Amino acid sequence: MLSPFLPQGLTEGAALFLLLISFLASFITAAFGIGGGALLLAFMAALVPTAALIPVHGVIQLGSNAGRVLILLGSVHRPALTGFVVGSVVGSILGGLIVVELPASVVQIGIGLFVIWTVFSRAPQWLRDMPVLTGAISSFLTMFFGATGLFVASYTKSFDLPRHGHVATHAALMTLQHCLKIVVFGVLGFAFGQWIGFIVMMIAAGFAGTVAGRVSLDWIDEKLFRRALNTLLVLISLRLILGGLGVI
Protein backbone atom coordinates (compact mmCIF):
# COMPACT_ATOMS: atom_id res chain seq x y z
CA MET A 1 0.00 0.00 0.00
CA LEU A 2 2.77 2.44 0.92
CA SER A 3 5.50 0.89 -1.25
CA PRO A 4 5.11 3.26 -4.27
CA PHE A 5 5.79 6.24 -1.99
CA LEU A 6 8.85 4.81 -0.22
CA PRO A 7 12.53 5.15 -1.14
CA GLN A 8 14.59 2.08 -1.94
CA GLY A 9 15.78 0.30 1.20
CA LEU A 10 12.87 1.26 3.45
CA THR A 11 10.29 -1.49 3.94
CA GLU A 12 6.56 -0.89 4.34
CA GLY A 13 6.62 -2.35 7.85
CA ALA A 14 9.44 -0.03 8.90
CA ALA A 15 7.61 2.95 7.39
CA LEU A 16 4.37 2.16 9.25
CA PHE A 17 6.29 1.83 12.51
CA LEU A 18 8.04 5.17 11.95
CA LEU A 19 4.70 6.85 11.19
CA LEU A 20 3.50 5.75 14.63
CA ILE A 21 6.71 7.04 16.22
CA SER A 22 6.27 10.36 14.38
CA PHE A 23 2.80 10.73 15.90
CA LEU A 24 4.05 9.88 19.40
CA ALA A 25 7.12 12.11 19.09
CA SER A 26 5.05 15.14 18.10
CA PHE A 27 2.51 14.42 20.82
CA ILE A 28 5.29 14.37 23.43
CA THR A 29 6.87 17.59 22.17
CA ALA A 30 3.54 19.43 21.91
CA ALA A 31 2.49 18.34 25.39
CA PHE A 32 5.82 18.73 27.20
CA GLY A 33 7.90 21.02 24.99
CA ILE A 34 10.81 18.64 24.34
CA GLY A 35 11.78 15.05 23.65
CA GLY A 36 10.10 14.13 20.38
CA GLY A 37 12.98 14.97 18.05
CA ALA A 38 15.51 12.83 19.91
CA LEU A 39 12.98 9.98 20.21
CA LEU A 40 12.28 10.03 16.48
CA LEU A 41 15.99 10.22 15.62
CA ALA A 42 16.77 7.20 17.80
CA PHE A 43 14.25 5.01 15.98
CA MET A 44 15.08 6.37 12.52
CA ALA A 45 18.76 5.62 13.12
CA ALA A 46 17.91 1.91 13.26
CA LEU A 47 15.76 1.87 10.11
CA VAL A 48 16.90 4.65 7.75
CA PRO A 49 20.18 4.56 5.76
CA THR A 50 22.91 6.52 7.52
CA ALA A 51 23.54 8.91 4.63
CA ALA A 52 19.89 9.99 4.63
CA LEU A 53 19.29 10.05 8.40
CA ILE A 54 20.18 13.66 9.34
CA PRO A 55 18.76 15.47 6.27
CA VAL A 56 15.50 13.46 6.18
CA HIS A 57 15.04 13.80 9.95
CA GLY A 58 15.61 17.54 9.52
CA VAL A 59 12.80 17.92 6.97
CA ILE A 60 10.39 15.89 9.10
CA GLN A 61 11.24 17.98 12.15
CA LEU A 62 10.79 21.16 10.13
CA GLY A 63 7.24 20.10 9.30
CA SER A 64 6.51 18.97 12.85
CA ASN A 65 7.77 22.17 14.46
CA ALA A 66 6.09 24.38 11.86
CA GLY A 67 2.79 22.72 12.74
CA ARG A 68 3.29 23.60 16.40
CA VAL A 69 4.11 27.20 15.49
CA LEU A 70 0.94 27.40 13.41
CA ILE A 71 -1.22 26.17 16.26
CA LEU A 72 0.49 28.29 18.95
CA LEU A 73 1.59 31.33 16.91
CA GLY A 74 0.25 33.89 19.36
CA SER A 75 2.34 32.44 22.20
CA VAL A 76 5.75 32.76 20.49
CA HIS A 77 8.18 34.92 22.50
CA ARG A 78 9.56 36.93 19.59
CA PRO A 79 12.49 38.59 21.42
CA ALA A 80 14.08 35.14 21.61
CA LEU A 81 14.24 34.79 17.82
CA THR A 82 16.34 37.55 16.22
CA GLY A 83 19.81 36.95 17.63
CA PHE A 84 19.30 33.20 17.58
CA VAL A 85 18.51 33.30 13.84
CA VAL A 86 21.66 35.28 13.05
CA GLY A 87 23.80 32.81 14.96
CA SER A 88 22.01 29.86 13.34
CA VAL A 89 22.89 31.11 9.86
CA VAL A 90 26.58 31.28 10.80
CA GLY A 91 26.56 27.91 12.57
CA SER A 92 24.78 26.10 9.71
CA ILE A 93 27.21 27.42 7.10
CA LEU A 94 30.28 26.54 9.18
CA GLY A 95 28.92 23.06 9.85
CA GLY A 96 28.32 22.52 6.14
CA LEU A 97 31.86 23.61 5.25
CA ILE A 98 33.56 21.15 7.60
CA VAL A 99 34.56 17.94 5.84
CA VAL A 100 35.54 15.83 8.84
CA GLU A 101 32.52 15.05 11.01
CA LEU A 102 32.69 15.49 14.74
CA PRO A 103 32.55 12.17 16.64
CA ALA A 104 28.89 11.58 17.49
CA SER A 105 29.86 10.21 20.89
CA VAL A 106 31.58 13.46 21.88
CA VAL A 107 28.59 15.54 20.83
CA GLN A 108 26.16 13.24 22.66
CA ILE A 109 28.07 13.33 25.93
CA GLY A 110 28.69 17.08 25.76
CA ILE A 111 25.06 18.01 25.12
CA GLY A 112 23.80 15.55 27.72
CA LEU A 113 26.05 16.91 30.48
CA PHE A 114 25.32 20.53 29.59
CA VAL A 115 21.55 20.09 29.67
CA ILE A 116 21.58 18.19 32.98
CA TRP A 117 23.63 21.02 34.45
CA THR A 118 21.10 23.62 33.29
CA VAL A 119 18.24 21.59 34.82
CA PHE A 120 19.79 21.44 38.28
CA SER A 121 21.26 24.94 38.31
CA ARG A 122 20.39 28.32 36.91
CA ALA A 123 20.90 28.50 33.18
CA PRO A 124 24.16 30.35 32.39
CA GLN A 125 23.57 34.03 31.71
CA TRP A 126 25.26 33.87 28.31
CA LEU A 127 22.70 31.29 27.15
CA ARG A 128 20.03 33.96 27.33
CA ASP A 129 22.09 37.10 26.88
CA MET A 130 24.14 35.80 23.91
CA PRO A 131 21.49 34.28 21.62
CA VAL A 132 23.79 34.69 18.60
CA LEU A 133 26.31 32.33 20.22
CA THR A 134 23.57 29.94 21.32
CA GLY A 135 22.14 29.83 17.80
CA ALA A 136 25.57 29.35 16.22
CA ILE A 137 26.61 26.48 18.51
CA SER A 138 23.33 24.57 18.29
CA SER A 139 23.06 25.01 14.49
CA PHE A 140 26.67 23.91 14.02
CA LEU A 141 26.06 20.77 16.08
CA THR A 142 22.78 19.90 14.36
CA MET A 143 24.62 19.46 11.05
CA PHE A 144 26.49 16.51 12.57
CA PHE A 145 24.21 15.22 15.30
CA GLY A 146 20.68 16.11 14.18
CA ALA A 147 18.68 16.34 17.41
CA THR A 148 19.92 19.45 19.23
CA GLY A 149 16.44 20.29 20.50
CA LEU A 150 17.71 19.69 24.03
CA PHE A 151 20.27 22.47 23.67
CA VAL A 152 17.69 24.88 22.24
CA ALA A 153 15.23 23.88 24.98
CA SER A 154 17.78 25.00 27.57
CA TYR A 155 17.92 28.41 25.87
CA THR A 156 14.12 28.60 25.75
CA LYS A 157 13.89 27.49 29.39
CA SER A 158 16.10 30.43 30.43
CA PHE A 159 13.25 32.85 29.60
CA ASP A 160 11.02 31.18 32.22
CA LEU A 161 7.97 31.29 29.94
CA PRO A 162 4.54 29.82 30.70
CA ARG A 163 3.98 26.38 29.19
CA HIS A 164 2.28 27.58 25.99
CA GLY A 165 4.99 30.18 25.44
CA HIS A 166 7.76 27.64 26.03
CA VAL A 167 6.38 25.13 23.54
CA ALA A 168 5.59 27.79 20.91
CA THR A 169 8.96 29.58 21.17
CA HIS A 170 10.96 26.36 21.13
CA ALA A 171 9.03 25.23 18.03
CA ALA A 172 9.71 28.54 16.27
CA LEU A 173 13.44 28.34 17.02
CA MET A 174 13.64 24.75 15.80
CA THR A 175 11.65 25.55 12.65
CA LEU A 176 14.16 28.23 11.70
CA GLN A 177 17.12 26.01 12.53
CA HIS A 178 15.86 22.98 10.57
CA CYS A 179 15.02 25.20 7.60
CA LEU A 180 18.59 26.43 7.45
CA LYS A 181 19.92 22.89 7.81
CA ILE A 182 17.83 21.67 4.88
CA VAL A 183 19.08 24.52 2.68
CA VAL A 184 22.70 23.60 3.47
CA PHE A 185 22.17 19.88 2.80
CA GLY A 186 20.46 20.79 -0.47
CA VAL A 187 23.44 22.90 -1.50
CA LEU A 188 25.71 19.99 -0.59
CA GLY A 189 23.78 17.81 -3.03
CA PHE A 190 21.51 15.57 -0.95
CA ALA A 191 18.68 14.16 -3.12
CA PHE A 192 15.51 14.88 -1.13
CA GLY A 193 13.25 13.94 -4.07
CA GLN A 194 13.27 10.17 -3.54
CA TRP A 195 12.23 10.66 0.08
CA ILE A 196 9.42 13.15 -0.49
CA GLY A 197 6.52 10.65 -0.22
CA PHE A 198 7.80 9.25 3.06
CA ILE A 199 8.53 12.74 4.40
CA VAL A 200 5.00 13.97 3.62
CA MET A 201 3.45 10.98 5.43
CA MET A 202 5.72 11.48 8.44
CA ILE A 203 4.86 15.19 8.65
CA ALA A 204 1.13 14.39 8.44
CA ALA A 205 1.43 11.83 11.24
CA GLY A 206 3.42 14.34 13.26
CA PHE A 207 0.81 17.05 12.78
CA ALA A 208 -1.88 14.69 14.09
CA GLY A 209 0.31 14.10 17.14
CA THR A 210 0.76 17.85 17.56
CA VAL A 211 -3.00 18.43 17.57
CA ALA A 212 -3.47 15.69 20.18
CA GLY A 213 -0.60 17.04 22.28
CA ARG A 214 -1.97 20.59 22.03
CA VAL A 215 -5.18 19.41 23.74
CA SER A 216 -3.14 17.91 26.57
CA LEU A 217 -1.13 21.12 26.91
CA ASP A 218 -4.30 23.07 27.71
CA TRP A 219 -5.11 21.11 30.85
CA ILE A 220 -1.64 20.25 32.14
CA ASP A 221 -0.90 21.94 35.46
CA GLU A 222 1.93 24.52 35.27
CA LYS A 223 3.98 22.92 38.07
CA LEU A 224 3.38 19.47 36.63
CA PHE A 225 4.54 20.74 33.25
CA ARG A 226 7.80 22.06 34.75
CA ARG A 227 8.48 18.78 36.54
CA ALA A 228 7.68 16.77 33.43
CA LEU A 229 9.89 19.02 31.29
CA ASN A 230 12.87 18.69 33.64
CA THR A 231 12.35 14.94 33.97
CA LEU A 232 12.31 14.50 30.21
CA LEU A 233 15.41 16.65 29.83
CA VAL A 234 17.32 14.54 32.36
CA LEU A 235 16.17 11.16 31.01
CA ILE A 236 16.98 11.98 27.41
CA SER A 237 20.30 13.53 28.44
CA LEU A 238 21.25 10.37 30.35
CA ARG A 239 20.34 8.34 27.26
CA LEU A 240 22.62 10.55 25.17
CA ILE A 241 25.51 10.23 27.64
CA LEU A 242 25.20 6.45 28.00
CA GLY A 243 24.96 6.10 24.22
CA GLY A 244 28.04 8.25 23.76
CA LEU A 245 29.94 6.10 26.25
CA GLY A 246 28.88 2.95 24.43
CA VAL A 247 26.97 1.57 27.43
CA ILE A 248 23.70 1.30 25.49
Rank of each mutant, 00 (worst) to 15 (best):
S3T: 14
L6D: 07
G9E: 11
L10M: 12
T11H: 09
E12W: 04
A15Y: 12
A15F: 13
L16I: 14
L18A: 03
L19W: 07
L19A: 14
L20M: 13
I21G: 12
I21E: 09
F23H: 05
L24W: 09
T29H: 10
A30Y: 01
A31Y: 10
F32N: 02
G35T: 02
G37S: 13
A38S: 13
F43D: 04
M44R: 10
L47M: 13
P49M: 06
P49K: 06
T50C: 00
T50I: 13
A51L: 11
A52P: 10
L53D: 11
P55G: 05
V59H: 07
I60H: 02
G63P: 10
N65V: 09
N65C: 08
A66Q: 01
R68E: 02
R68H: 03
V69P: 04
L73R: 15
L73H: 14
S75E: 13
V76M: 08
R78V: 14
R78D: 04
P79W: 03
L81K: 08
V85D: 00
V85Y: 05
V86F: 12
S88G: 15
V89S: 01
V90K: 08
L94E: 03
V99H: 12
V100Q: 15
V107Y: 05
Q108S: 15
G110V: 11
G112R: 02
F114K: 03
T118V: 12
S121V: 00
A123W: 00
P124H: 11
P124C: 07
W126A: 01
W126L: 08
L127N: 04
P131Y: 01
A136L: 15
F140H: 02
L141G: 14
T142Q: 14
G146V: 06
G149D: 08
L150W: 04
F151P: 06
S158I: 07
D160T: 01
P162S: 09
H164D: 06
G165I: 03
A168V: 05
L173W: 03
M174H: 02
T175A: 13
T175H: 06
L176T: 12
L176Y: 10
L176D: 01
H178Y: 11
L180A: 04
I182S: 07
G186F: 09
G186R: 11
V187T: 07
A191P: 15
Q194K: 12
F198R: 05
M201A: 15
M202L: 14
I203H: 09
A204L: 15
F207R: 04
F207E: 14
G209C: 09
T210R: 02
R214G: 08
R214S: 14
V215E: 06
V215C: 04
V215K: 15
S216G: 13
D218V: 09
D218W: 00
K223T: 12
F225R: 04
F225I: 05
R226D: 12
R227I: 07
N230I: 01
L233C: 04
L233P: 09
L235H: 00
S237F: 01
S237D: 09
G244D: 01
G246V: 02
I248V: 15
